[in-house]
Design a protein around this nucleic acid. Sequence first.
RNA 1: GCGGCGGUGGCGGAACGGUAGACGCGGGGCCCUCAAAAGGCCCUGUCCGCAAGGGCGUGUGGGUUCGAUUCCCACCCGCCGCACCA
Length: 839
Amino acid sequence: MAERRYEPHEIEPRWQELWARERTWEVTNEPAEGRGGPAAGAGLAANCYVLEMLPYPSGEPHIGHLKCYSVGDAIAHFRRRLGARVLHPMGYDAFGLPAENHAIKTGEHPRDSTAASIASFRRQFHSWGISIDWSRELATHEPSYYRWTQWIFLQLFEAGLAYRKEAAVKWCPKDQTVLANEQVDAEGHCERCGALVEVRQLEQWFFRITDYAERLLSDLDGIDWPEHVKTMQRNWIGRSEGAEVTFRCEDLDPADPVDYPVFTTRPDTLFGATFFVMAPEHPDVMRLAQGTEHEQAVHDYVNHALNETNEERGNAEKPKTGVPLGRTVTNPVNGERIPMYVADYVLMEYGTGAIMAVPGHDERDYAFARAFGLPIRRVIEGTPEDGGDEHGLPYAGDGPLVNSHRDFDGMPNREALAAIVAWLDREGKGHASVNYRLRDWLVSRQRYWGAPIPIVHCEGCGMVPVPEEQLPVELPEIEDYTPKGRSPLAAAEDWVNVKCPACGGRARRETDTMDTFVDSSWYYMRYCDARNERAAWDQGALRQWMPVDQYIGGVEHAILHLMYARFFTKALADLGQLDFQEPFQALFTQGMVTKDGSKMSKSKGNVVSPAAIVERVGADTARCYILFVGPPDQDADWSDKGVEGVHRFLSRLWRMAAETAERAGAPDPRFPDLAGARGDDLALARKTHWAIDKVSGDLRRFAFNTAIAAVMELLNDCSRLHETVDTETLRFALASAASLLFPFAPHVSADAYALLTGERVWEQPWPEADEALLESDTYELVCQVNGKVRDRVQASSGAGAEELKDLCRAAPNVIAHVDGHEIVKEIVVPGKLVNLVVR
RNA sequence: GCGGCGGUGGCGGAACGGUAGACGCGGGGCCCUCAAAAGGCCCUGUCCGCAAGGGCGUGUGGGUUCGAUUCCCACCCGCCGCACCA
């Protein structure tokens, strides 16, 4: 027999070419009925949408991409072979800062460097053999795509969900540009030039995601996402129940008092409020201090606070600072006049930017009161073991009210809370209220490489949307990508100066571009109808595929991308553009791939390049290894030795398949009936069916590592028994191994399967385990004495409880351990064990 | 501080409340070979023992149970997210 070698570099391109030539993985938008298939019976939707998060094309794909698409491809293949028509597309999130920074440095147009990266990604995805429907490929920087990004912006604008307002934003004085939060390091330096970042008040575009806070929160209950991702989203939305309470200030003009609402989660402690604090950014702070002895101090304090970095200001450990405003407000529940302060521990962006301070029952207010010598009043009774100072304050627990009002004193605080809110409501001094931590999404960027915001500023008409038929507003060609205090687009004078679409008068284009998260908030819908030139999508096309059945990506997108995409879906559904509420029915988050225990990075020199691995051992080995190394939702450490082990396994599988095919003569699509097999043939048939059962179950729960291990076990049995079993039995076992491994290692599996059967494995239905062969007529009964294993004996599968007890009592080593003791109890677990409890 | 995830051999990791350590890596031995590479076979938690067998073992301490890596309580350690959120 000729020596046969596993040659991935011959096998892999051969199958890739066939799949490309026959467009094997393309699906049309025809309704599913015509296709039938076993899907309906299996309870699976006949149409199934499997999607991995689209890559940001920068340089070459890294090992994290390999993991993500290996997971997604395994699921896509499995669903297909269960009978579903699977949509599995690919695209590129092509706008963004790295390409722009590269352009600033080298002068190369971002479009050119992006095109080069996309070509590299596309080439590698082909070389990995990922089953992609390439007919739907898209890139977010193409005018044919961002035309519809702009269209969606206009939908939101017209619905009042996109708006402009002044906001405090991060500003780099050296680069003369606004920075996104993520471009500022922990110490408050600009990521690119290292200059200290400032805060500036500038007009910016926002999406009104806060309108959707409640639905974004409650709809989490209906989707199949990992619990930790849901928790992160819940925390980010940060819902708090409480009350809004109005404090009145009559100091400026008694005839024209000003009302300051505050949000509190503890209206039950209202009687304990002994001062009032405003955030430094609060618009009234300077007006209030004006003319008082504190005016200069307030001015200095506010300026200092605004220039502090988040890091400095956000530190809860730092001592409380602040300045009196020299004014008072009236506590609505008892008419007390309490002093006003400005302090940086109050945040403008949460609640109303002002708080009532209850030092007796809030740690921060307590610290402030201590530092400023303000009165501290207990209004809820605690117990001595609650801790705190010599008076047991601050006390955050529950208890009856004291020192409040005769109507409420003695009442448990939770009850009092409701009663006080009801009273405030009746008096018109407050009402129950819900507050969210979530803030509106700032979407404008003073950057070149993004989708232009399709708005025209007219001297007469104000903000005018660009008419739909004029979309896309294409990016102008410019020479200099460096921002200079305004968007680089502003330099393209010919482009900026336009006629107002409404009145025909002089107008200027909006020069800001959109945050790249806008582009990626709707791409999954575009795939459903990627070549539509008349609309972003056809609703009928969406109905066939959406929502995504299985979404796959890294946890780093747990909050932003996944929240924004959910917001888009809900907003567009409200606008009648879709008829579903959630974009991703199920989510799987894959863990990171590390090397030597730490994140791969160029500076550490521990980067594993997928291209180099594929070059050395082939794509099947690389894909299989990354899924075998551990549970895919957990982090995994890359080991070159481990890769070799998987390569040996695939090599053995292919070689044995080739040898067995030769021994069997011609390939044959039929398998022998092994129901009546005996001896080793029966053992191997059983192992095969065990593996089918195991891999099927493991695939459903994303346990790819144990699925691959099961095929390894099957192959180990094949080599152990290959000389004693019938060739046909071996052929069945090996073909099954190839069939089960196909979702993970498609090329070698397709090749082995074809050698043995002459068939295309991806056209075969997923194998089904034969119940009869999963059962065995005897098994090893574990015999325990007092819970410790003392012996093992053969028992027949049909044996009853009494028979099993007898077997156990008769086991030699059981006899030795029972000797001299009394059996007080006998536990029988049929099919497993007998436990004798002795005394 | 709050929330989440995790802690099992030399290593990555397996284990519906029922034989702890599947599978792989590493290590040891052997076969094939003039030799090597490749491949194949066997052993491999730990301690005692020639063996049969036994003791100990899933971060720590308790609990529930005939039986706990698994369930409950209290801690310790590590990683991730959020954090002066009123």
